[in-house]
Design a binder for these strands. Structure first.
Lengths: 130, 130
DNA sequence: GCTTGCGTTGGAGTGCGCTCCAACTCCTAC
DNA sequence: GTAGGAGTTGGAGCGCACTCCAACGCAAGC
């Protein structure tokens, strides 16, 4: 009853995933241990083989991370995902909320950017510079 | 020769500055120790009295921090400031550079925001939701 | 003068997000 | 079969930006 799948050719080693995502192998293992990524399929020898769906999920995680979501919140989201489609409304609500806070952050950054522009102009004026 | 200035009325205690900036008194002392803020005037009893110019500088620091500048880089900027007007060109160059990287970050956040919008639409579609 | 509370210091501790390490196994090429 | 490199684990360590603490000093009201 060996369930030895033929391991579809589109399978990636940890370094391949690392290279393609910009994460280090250590960070990939850390994310998996933390439950951000569900346990990755292994070869007979115990080595991780990432499926392209795993890769897509990691890229989504990176988007959440890069927009300021904490590990703890990503853990929560990943749990909901593992719990199945019944949690889609929850996940949608979380994403919408995150999206709103992202726009607020962007607006805040832009306002600060304008203040920096003023400061830059002030310095330029001091120098008679263009 | 006592240089006991009358301490212009527009002088603030550490908690007043904390309340007005949102920083904690501990953080204000930490910033001063770290050299982000030059030594603040003291009362006879050794208590800090912040001038409004100190407040303005702290608010500027917060703008740098909120736009992603590290403590180390703010230390550098503060050093240049203490070194006098000869460093204005350097400071201008740093600010311009920081400004450019800020715009890059904003663009990146916006791109990620659009990707999140796609994901949100995907979930909405799953639900037949508006 | 005494209490209450704000402020001071140096230094230790915290939370986050990794990052590194030792000791080991596995896989490939020769 | 052997050498070299890639991958595995649990756990320790790190850098950043604070945050907290104990022990003390000073100030204002009663």
């Amino acid at each position: 009853m060996a369930s030895e799948k033929p391991l579809p050719a589109e399978t990636l080693t940890i370094t391949e995933v690392a290279d393609s995502t910009g994460l280090s192998p250590d960070t990939l293992r850390y994310y998996e241990k933390a439950g951000l990524i569900s346990p990755i399929d292994r070869t007979a020898g115990g080595r991780r083989r990432y499926a392209t769906t795993d890769l897509a999920w990691i890229e989504f995680l990176l988007r959440l991370r890069d927009t300021g979501m904490s590990i703890a919140d990503m853990q929560h989201f990943a749990e909901l995902r593992r719990a199945g489609t019944a949690t889609v409304p929850d996940r949608l609500a979380l994403l919408r909320d995150h999206r709103i806070r992202l726009d607020e952050r962007i607006a805040h950054l832009q306002a600060n950017g304008h203040a920096l522009d003023d400061k830059i102009r002030h310095y330029e004026h001091l120098l008679g510079d263009a």
